[in-house]
Amino acid sequence: MSDGIIRNYISREIIRDRAVALDNETPLLEEGILDSLALLRLVVFIQEQFGIVVEDVEIVPENFASVEAISRYIDSRGDRASRLGAT
């Protein structure tokens, strides 16, 4: 669910170029799509959009390698948040 929102954000705000195709598996780091500034902007966007706090130790390549990875990370945070909320 989160993947569409993330893909859209990266396309419109970071890549800003329709000629560059972006799918869920596009390697964001190897392709140089995310640099340190873009990464920070993306983290801020994720926190605001999904209402989660991205911890410093979670800003790691595994969580930001692709739209798929970011989406998986957000979902895992959501699960954790709802579990914590339930107890």
């Binding site: 780091l29 995310l34 640099d35 340190s36 990464l39 410093d56 130790v57 800003i59 790691v60 390549p61």
Partner: peptide, 9 residues
């Protein structure tokens, strides 16, 4: 390469 992007790492 790219490690500088990830401050905790």
């Amino acid at each position: 390469d790219r490690l500088s992007m990830f401050p905790s790492r």
